[in-house]
Computed example of a mutant assay.
Amino acid sequence: MTHAEQTVWILVADAARARFYQAQGARGPLLELEDAVHPASRLPGHELLADRPGRALDSHGEHRHGMEPTIDPKDEEARRFAAELCARLRERYQAHAFNHLVLVAPPRFLGFLRDALDHQLASRVLASVDLDLTHCTTPDVVRAHLPDPLY
């Protein structure tokens, strides 16, 4: 087995923060590799909109009303962050940094991550854990919530 085949990366994320961990072997301790933040996800939705919604005429009459955005700006930022994280994972996977992947995120953001994974990375996901562990203070606390063994 090569180094990468024994290496599991764990992405612990929510819409505003992500931590990348690595474990060697099935029951190995976690080592935190990187901590990434996405400050835009912490902004109120109205601050994420670049401009006010457009105006439209009623179909019957001359009254104008505001148009609501069709996409929730908070979700859009969360999707953008998920795509950035998956691009980072793809780059590291292609550099043979890991072979197995575990995703840990709250249910909604976990869905955004899954949507952003390409087929190659998706095939490397061993487990998905729908918890928000981004505020855990030590890798041991994160490890306690992961499947044992990881693969």
Rank of each mutant, 00 (worst) to 15 (best):
T2H: 15
H3V: 06
E5W: 09
Q6E: 12
T7E: 08
T7A: 14
V8C: 15
I10Y: 04
L11N: 08
D14Q: 00
A15W: 14
A15H: 11
A16C: 13
A18L: 05
A18S: 09
R19W: 12
F20I: 01
Y21Q: 09
Y21L: 13
A23M: 07
A23T: 02
R27P: 02
L31G: 07
E34S: 08
D35Q: 12
A36Y: 08
P39T: 09
R42D: 09
L43R: 15
G45W: 14
H46S: 03
E47P: 10
L48P: 04
A50Y: 02
D51A: 04
D51P: 04
R52S: 14
G54F: 07
G54S: 14
R55Y: 00
L57W: 01
D58I: 00
S59T: 15
H60S: 12
H60G: 14
G61E: 02
E62I: 08
H63S: 07
R64V: 08
R64C: 07
R64I: 06
G66E: 04
M67I: 01
M67K: 05
P69Y: 09
I71R: 15
P73T: 08
P73N: 02
P73F: 06
E77A: 09
E77Q: 03
E77T: 00
F81C: 03
F81D: 00
A82G: 03
A82D: 01
A82M: 01
A83Y: 01
A83D: 00
C86S: 03
R88G: 10
L89Y: 06
L89K: 07
L89G: 08
R90L: 06
Y93L: 12
Y93W: 12
Y93E: 11
Y93G: 06
Y93A: 12
Q94P: 06
H96V: 05
H100N: 01
H100W: 14
L101W: 02
L101M: 01
V102Q: 08
L103P: 07
L103Q: 01
V104Q: 03
P106N: 05
R108K: 11
F109Q: 06
F109P: 08
F109V: 11
L110Y: 02
F112R: 04
F112W: 06
F112Q: 10
F112V: 04
F112S: 04
L113S: 02
L113A: 04
L113W: 01
R114T: 10
D115W: 03
A116M: 05
L117W: 03
H119C: 11
L121G: 07
A122G: 10
A122I: 02
R124S: 12
L126R: 15
L126W: 10
S128Y: 02
D130T: 03
D130Y: 10
L131N: 14
L131K: 15
L133F: 00
L133W: 00
H135V: 13
H135C: 10
C136E: 10
T138L: 03
T138I: 01
P139S: 05
P139G: 04
P139A: 01
D140T: 07
D140H: 05
D140V: 00
V141S: 09
V141H: 15
V142F: 00
V142A: 05
A144M: 05
H145G: 08
P147L: 13
D148N: 11
D148T: 10
P149K: 11
P149Y: 07
